[in-house]
């Protein structure tokens, strides 16, 4: 991992503490990501307002709101984040419907496979990084374009 870029960050939401522990330990062992976990959707949204993350993973079936509603609200706060849904078998159909609704990047079925989950997250973060680079390049281009325009104006002034 490049040392001068900040560590990629994840937020994980599941109402079951045991799932949070399993996932947090997996990422601690296998990755350098910064992992924030929440068991309450409201708290997770609260945290989202002050702390940007690159990728968010949410459970589907939760008491406060379902995962799709949560990811929709999360998207309003942090539109640039990559969104992943963790679903039970029976919720798969909903997950597929949600792909367009909340711009879902991927859904992962419970029980998940550790290796598969790591790949989905890694690819999601890569996409986030590429989008960020693209944004930076576009901003640079815009800047160069403005410079060029003022140069052109200056040139025209000099000759006229």
């Amino acid at each position: 991992m490049n040392t001068d870029t900040p560590r990629p960050s994840l937020l994980i939401l599941d109402d079951e503490e045991m799932v949070l522990t399993s996932l947090r330990n997996l990422f601690r062992l296998q990755t350098e990501y910064e992992v924030i976990v929440h068991s309450s959707a409201r708290e997770a949204l609260e945290s989202a307002r002050t702390r940007p993350v690159d990728l968010v993973i949410s459970d589907y079936l939760m008491p406060e709101m379902d995962g799709i509603t949560f990811l929709g609200r999360f998207k309003e706060i942090q539109p640039q984040s990559i969104r992943v849904l963790l679903t039970g078998y029976a919720d798969k159909e909903n997950a597929i419907r949600a792909i367009n609704q909340v711009g879902l990047y991927q859904y992962i079925e419970k029980p998940w496979d550790n290796a598969e989950l790591l790949i989905v997250v890694k690819n999601g973060l890569e996409k986030r990084q590429l989008l960020r680079t693209l944004e930076e390049k576009i901003a640079e281009l815009a800047k160069v374009n403005t410079n060029l325009k003022s140069l052109q104006t200056a040139l025209l002034k000099a000759f006229l």
């Binding site: 045991m18 997996l26 039970g88 419970k110």
Partner: peptide, 21 residues
Amino acid sequence: AHEMNTPLASVSSNTDTIALV
């Protein structure tokens, strides 16, 4: 079966994590 799924998912994941540890 549905209720068993989440704890089972956790156990399964932990098993693989501990193997790596």
